[in-house]
């Protein structure tokens, strides 16, 4: 019985460690999805053709899993323009969506293009998005490194803690 209990503790601790590491991978995926979405927006804006509600709608259908909710929020709330500005909607979307795994700095970087979105010509908006992309790319690299290191660290910590607890139990 004690042995079974000890094995379960080791498994539980290892899973806890893996979950913590998965959180770091989620941030990496969120950043990667945001970068893909921003690149799509940049390309669309350079064509000067499609209005933002259509771009948001398309992203709400086809963007990566982690950022779909954010673009769905924007697409659904464009009818509130007049009550709120697009800048406010964009910031609300970033701040209210707790599912978005982003650091404070990353959120701040993503808020930056909101000041320009929809107010200027396509090329000018695309430049701001390009600058946001260039600031977020190093964040993605950092997040990837952190996720790799975190996986080893948390799994090791989880396993070690599990083994120690198991030793105490036995």
């Amino acid at each position: 019985m004690k042995l079974i209990g000890a094995v379960l503790v080791v498994i539980a601790c290892t899973i806890y460690g893996l979950e913590k590491a998965a959180g770091l991978y989620k941030r990496r995926r969120t950043l990667a999805d945001f970068l893909d979405a921003l690149r799509f927006m940049e390309a669309e804006l350079l064509n000067n053709a499609r209005p933002l509600p259509e771009i948001f709608y398309e992203l709400s259908c086809h963007a990566g899993k982690e950022v779909k909710g954010f673009f769905t929020y924007l697409a659904e709330n464009m009818s509130r323009l007049g009550e709120e500005s697009l800048c406010q909607l964009w910031c609300d979307g970033l701040n209210l969506d707790r599912q978005l795994s982003l650091s404070a700095i990353q959120r701040q970087e993503l808020i930056r293009p909101a000041m320009m979105l929809g107010k200027f010509m396509g090329e000018e908006q695309a430049k701001v998005i390009e600058s946001t992309i260039s600031r977020l790319e190093p964040e993605l690299l950092k997040a990837t490194e952190e996720a790799k290191a975190g996986l080893r660290l948390y799994m090791g910590l989880g396993l070690t803690a599990g083994l120690m607890l198991a030793a105490v139990i036995i």
């Binding site: 804006l45 053709a49 499609r50 209005p51 979105l117 929809g118 396509g122």
Partner: peptide, 17 residues
């Protein structure tokens, strides 16, 4: 004025360039 333009263009000034 900026907000009126934003509402009128559905936040897409670039589409009305």
């Amino acid at each position: 004025l900026q907000l009126v333009l934003e509402i009128a263009t559905r936040a897409s000034v670039h589409s009305y360039a």
